[in-house]
Design a protein around this nucleic acid. Structure first.
Lengths: 213, 213
DNA sequence: GACCTTCTCACCTACGTGTTAAGC
DNA sequence: TCGCTTAACACGTAGGTGAGAAGG
């Protein structure tokens, strides 16, 4: 597999020399990351907040690409939140066979992908493997994960090659899965910034209704 | 062009011998058709009600297909509603270059298409050609139209062939476009059956919250 | 005046939030 | 008990209805 994992930013790449992927809402992601990002998993599936969105540049406007996302383990541990801190709590569950989420816009020309922000916010995180819906990613609770985005130069959605990926991962987007928030700081950031949680704000809130999803 | 237009039901077909397309909510469509179906067109776009939904069978489970929809003129007239009846009111506007709406699930295997109902309910009808959104179909008000569904045996979304279509049209789905309902019977049927119009119901209404969209 | 179109509105559906209490 | 999970809930966003008044 000719994969490359990069921290974002410009890099020479197997598919395009000037390919560049930027994480959207980077400041927001960093606010969460500073206190330890948590993402809820439920049986029916829960969206991520902040939403995973990227801006692409450096693609060939006239070539077709497919965009994919997956979420991989950061380590082999299970975690617990004790005395205000996350700590290792034993051996982690093995990650179930990785679900690759194909962006519904695939395939599309480089021009279209670069035209506006590419959003993966429809994806839902679940801890139940009974439902086989296409928009769900199964994760284990109390584990650390890292979302990644893959760019493939192909117009064939049905038979994705196993090589020639360009894979990008942003350290700011690492999170721990939970069934209920553990850290109050995280809850506060979610309420203050997610428009759907507006009902729980106390002050006026500095976040408007900017579309962060 | 090796097209075939059929009234639905089984038929020998250029792409699959046992291909069959059934219209969903057929009884509902026929209730509207009996009084003269009207569909609202607006600047921002309005969904059709009933929604255009079909059930497929007889496809090859392991072959990839694309599904498309378009809406064509039934005749060359402009209509008006007078004394409780629709009548010809002059020469119709020529139909603008036909927009082919590609179902977002395309391409997919025959197995997937047959798995559940294929819905085109996200399509919006508009009388304004300024917006170029992909989910809008531009129509002239006070004209008669016929929606059609096309099935193509191909996995290439980007370069659809101009032959080997199988085209299906159901006479029950013919409608006249309006900017405001003309026939009170139509309004009554819409209110009684469309869940989003529940606020205008007087009696209990026999229609539950069945998902007809 | 008659006919058609546009806009705003109250009222719905649908569903994304964290909270809370109960369950295991 | 403690830690974690589940389900019901109130409250928000987002957007699909026809009514009715206003405009052309």
């Amino acid at each position: 597999l000719a994969r490359r994992t990069q921290g974002g930013g410009r890099a020479s790449s197997p598919i395009d020399p000037n390919l560049r992927v930027e994480l959207c809402d980077r400041e927001l992601w960093e606010q969460f990351s500073r206190v330890g990002t948590e993402m809820i998993v439920t049986k029916s599936g829960r969206r991520m907040f902040p939403g995973y969105r990227v801006k692409l540049s450096g693609l060939d406007p006239n070539t077709k690409y497919c965009l994919l996302m997956d979420i991989v383990n950061v380590d082999q541990h299970r975690y617990k939140f004790q005395q205000g801190e996350w700590m290792v709590a034993g051996r982690g569950e093995p990650h179930s066979p990785q679900r690759l989420f194909l962006h519904p816009g695939s395939p599309a020309s480089g021009e279209k992908w670069m035209d506006d922000v590419v959003s993966f916010n429809k994806i839902k995180l679940t801890n139940s493997n009974v439902s086989k819906a296409a928009d769900k990613i199964v994760l284990n609770s109390m584990h650390r994960y890292q979302p990644r985005v893959h760019i493939i130069r192909t117009d064939d959605v049905t038979n994705l090659p196993s090589e020639m990926f360009s894979t990008f991962a942003f350290p700011q987007t690492v999170f721990i899965t939970v069934t209920a928030y553990q850290n109050g700081e995280v809850t506060k950031l979610k309420i203050d910034n997610n428009p759907f949680a507006k009902g729980f704000r106390e002050n006026g809130g500095r976040a408007g209704s900017k579309n962060l999803n």
